[in-house]
Nucleic acid binder design. Structure first.
Lengths: 224, 224
DNA sequence: CTTAATTAATAGCTTTACTATTATCTTTGC
DNA sequence: GCAAAGATAATAGTAAAGCTATTAATTAAG
């Protein structure tokens, strides 16, 4: 049942991996433990050797699933965005009022991910931390254009587009819907990171609620 | 004369370097060429060996100036923010109208840096590209807290604070002035990067002007 | 002009990132 | 039930990156 839900809802572009990690125990272990290890060490100090030690396997076995650690992080973030998109659709499908719908979307994009028991080998709240701390490194590389050509950012772009459509529902003349939504998503991550490490760059009177409130207010005042 | 201006206006925290690169020919060469090389290769593929080959020196000589390449990038971005702060003060000192002042600040923060002939060994427009593409990596590391303790982000925090004061001049009750300004600075960089590499995430009808227009509108509508 | 102090170059070491090859484990056809 | 074929994992490497101890050369002080 979990497996079924897994297969149907979360679909990752197969150019990210050499062999689908969902297809074997070792593969699922790679995904599961890489989340913890990247969170623990940071992406720079995360290596396949350390990961293989942790899961009792070898470096070259991991290389059979992923070309390099960059692709592992791409897999993890794609999974995260896909999962979030699924929740977005689920939470807004019954909402008629476009204003309410956009508000729900912004809350989802700016709040902390909750654990989801449907995917047993993925810890969503740790994954969320990894996405906040590391995901921007995925497109700040020399390979960004070829990765983009391969469709490795498709899920993310689709999510941004989906929310920007909600913006246009409210104001069809608004010129910067994509800019606004990608600013909200990336900005919310950044502000959470700043709150933890560089609090002078943010205003943390009321923590996470502040971030959601700030971005909600930014969006609605900008498009009206 | 250039040297004098150099010494007086741009002051870098001396914990960034082991030996001040301004103090010697080799040091200035390291700064000058590292800008081009990081821009060319990206930060990941930039190494001290490659840099030393380019400037006709050796790896270990560069290590006498900087602990590692991370500190070089910290030096470059600190220099950039310091230089921008200097321009901000210069451009707004005679502006009385707080609205006009903030508008000038946002333009400066969201537009492309122009070449400044006062600093002969630094190419500001290439440095700006480096800051856009690489600077976020500086605080997405395991060392962010200790770097912050050492004051390596002070210039940046001071710049954000300076502009957030302008926001508070216009609306003393606005709760998120720092969040707003750090979102603008980081967001403008991000959108420029997206426009080049992931255009689906932005709205590039009118290029750079669009970005300035978007963020100006976001700021003024949010604080009013 | 000799000695001390500073600075640069040489050579090497450890770790990372990756790969070619060998070994082992499953199938599955008969 | 078992051998051949195919798939999977472990071994053993290589090249480059990141860093350092040591030696050589240059500059400054007395």
């Amino acid at each position: 049942m979990n497996e079924l839900l897994n297969q149907t809802s979360i679909k990752i572009n197969d150019k990210v991996f050499l062999k689908n990690p969902e297809s074997s125990n070792l593969g699922r272990n790679i995904i599961s433990e890489s989340i913890f290890l990247i969170n623990e060490l940071g992406f720079e100090k995360f290596t396949f050797r350390k990961l293989s030690n942790k899961i009792g396997s070898t470096e070259s076995s991991i290389y059979r699933y992923f070309e390099n650690k960059h692709k592992v992080l791409l897999y993890l973030t794609s999974w995260y965005w896909c999962w979030l998109e699924y929740q977005l659709v689920f939470k807004t499908v019954n909402t008629k009022d476009p204003q309410e719908k956009l508000k729900t979307a912004i809350e989802l994009l700016t709040q902390t991910a909750k654990q989801d028991s449907n995917y047993s080998y993925i810890n969503e709240s740790v994954l969320h931390k990894v996405v906040i701390a590391e995901s921007s490194k995925l497109y700040h590389t020399q390979e960004v254009d070829s990765d983009n050509k391969d469709g490795l950012f498709l899920v993310y772009k689709r999510l941004v587009h989906r929310v920007s459509v909600m913006v246009l529902e409210l104001n069809p003349n608004y010129e910067y819907s994509h800019m606004l939504i990608s600013t909200v998503i990336e900005g919310a991550h950044q502000q959470k990171h700043f709150a933890l490490h560089l609090p002078k760059l943010t205003d943390t009177q009321d923590g996470e609620k502040g971030i959601t409130h700030f971005f909600t207010q930014v969006v609605f005042s900008s498009i009206s």
